[in-house]
């Protein structure tokens, strides 16, 4: 989808919502850059990770382990584990990303936020616009934030003060709520939540969320629209 077409399809409200998430991501990027450099890592480490990996949770984990003197291989393994959820995201949004060469940049731009934005739209055209605008916006804002945070050092290291740690789950929650109005999806999601929460104390980061997919055992697909209407 050409850029012009993305901007034409996005309505103003959605563009504003995406802009807000980009802004919040850039502040988290500031803290990530600052924490990395403050922890004794050279500036190129957080910046390179942000460009070539571009997955916030795994980047925090990576720099946290390496800055604490841990093995880079362990940091890499932990990062890969946290990022496994992208396999499921990729299966869900592949038609949103598009075909041909677009799959390459489109896949790299996959984040929790723009996947959630895309799933929240009704029509394929809007899904595409939300996914691409969100992905490009977050990529640009995140990387700018990381560079500034890394250069400025200890300006913002604790985004909890601003409540950003609560803002991100709230963003995703607001975006998945419409999909949770479907009863079957909701049952599966709630089962997944229980599984993930039970597993969290015992398993390394990333694995509990992946285990939540077992909640799909409770999913019953494809009820006809008529039957759904009668159940309302």
């Amino acid at each position: 989808m050409p850029m012009r077409s993305i901007w034409r399809t996005l309505d103003r409200g959605l563009a504003r919502d995406i802009g807000l998430v980009c802004l919040a991501d850039s502040v988290v990027g500031l803290s990530y850059g600052a924490i990395s450099v403050g922890g004794g890592l050279p500036l190129w480490v957080p910046i390179l990770l942000s460009i070539v990996v571009f997955a916030g949770a795994s980047q925090f984990l990576f720099v946290g382990i390496v800055a604490a003197g841990g093995s880079p291989i362990a940091a890499m393994a932990a990062g890969l584990l946290v990022n496994t959820r992208h396999i499921a995201f990729g299966l869900a949004v592949s038609d949103v990303i598009g075909s041909g060469w677009r799959r390459w940049p489109g896949s790299h731009l996959m984040t929790d936020e723009n996947v959630a934005f895309a799933m929240g739209q009704d029509e394929l055209k809007q899904r595409r616009a939300a996914y691409w605008a969100g992905g490009i916006g977050i990529f640009v804002c995140w990387n700018i934030g990381v560079v500034i945070g890394g250069l400025a050092g200890s300006v913002i290291t604790d985004t909890d003060v601003f409540g950003l740690d609560a803002a991100f789950p709230a963003v995703l929650l607001a975006l998945v709520l419409p999909a949770l109005r479907d009863r079957s999806t909701r049952t599966a999601a709630l089962a997944g939540v229980v599984i993930a929460l039970i597993a969290t104390p015992f398993l390394p980061a990333g694995l509990p969320v992946l285990l939540a997919l077992a909640g799909m055992l409770f999913y019953r697909a494809g009820k006809p629209a008529l039957e759904d209407a009668q159940n309302e």
């Binding site: 959820r85 299966l91 996947v115 799933m119 995703l172 999806t185 929460l197 939540a212 909640g215 697909a221």
Partner: peptide, 24 residues
Amino acid sequence: QFLAAAAIVLLTALVATSALTEGH
């Protein structure tokens, strides 16, 4: 439909774990 629901299940679990837990 199944894959879309699976993505929603993952995102919801991510909401729960990131809202309620820190580390272990």
